[in-house]
Amino acid sequence: MKRVARPITVKYLQNAAAFYLERYPSSAEGLRRVLNRRVAKAKMLDAPIMDNVQQAIEVVVAKFVDAGVIDDKAFAQTKARSLHRRGTSSRLTRQKLKMAGVDADTLDEAMQGLDVELDVTPAQREHHAAAALARRRRLGPYRPTEDRKDHRLRDLATMARAGFAYDVAKKVIDAKDADSLDEA
């Protein structure tokens, strides 16, 4: 049985955007991508699509931005804070925010805002994120003492894949114990 897609209209785009934003935080570019995927899916299913669909998408996105539902700065700040707490490196945080459709200036403001909020330098922020990753993944000082030596290279590789510089990863993995990480 062939699936039948609903016609793409302005009302459909508004409803799809509202439904998406109720469930997920998004940047303006992120919402634009979601709506474009809906249109592409409708094209694949041969559904009727209104003329000037790209202009309609821009109008819908602008309407949500003007209403304050979408705020790229707040989105970037919240996402950066969340990723930092999880132990995501600055490099990976920047990459994830770019992929979410955050422009470079907003991204820089979010990272600087995170430093101000945490009252740290970028290097200290990176160290705190590395320690958070080690805690979450039970690496280095969070590993049982008898296993640390055998897993050191594996732990360093995990930190490298997470986007941390070697010196930061080495400092965290080779820390004497978990308490010494919190002091740094």
Rank of each mutant, 00 (worst) to 15 (best):
K176F: 04
E58F: 05
L107V: 02
T106H: 00
A165F: 02
G87A: 02
A160V: 01
T88W: 01
T78L: 07
D174P: 09
E58W: 03
K63L: 10
D147E: 15
V172E: 12
F164N: 15
S89R: 13
L118W: 06
K149P: 05
E126L: 00
A104C: 00
L153A: 14
L83D: 10
L31N: 03
A134V: 02
G163D: 10
K2Y: 09
V102Y: 05
R136N: 09
K41S: 13
T145H: 07
T121L: 12
A56E: 12
Y24E: 14
A62Q: 06
I70W: 10
Y24F: 14
L118R: 10
G68H: 14
L31F: 00
K79S: 14
L92W: 10
V34K: 05
D115N: 14
D108K: 00
E126V: 00
D103E: 15
A76M: 05
G113P: 05
D105H: 03
A56L: 06
P48E: 11
A169P: 08
V53E: 09
L92H: 11
H84L: 03
F19Q: 15
L83C: 08
T145N: 09
T93K: 12
R3G: 01
R23Y: 04
D108Q: 04
P48G: 04
L153V: 01
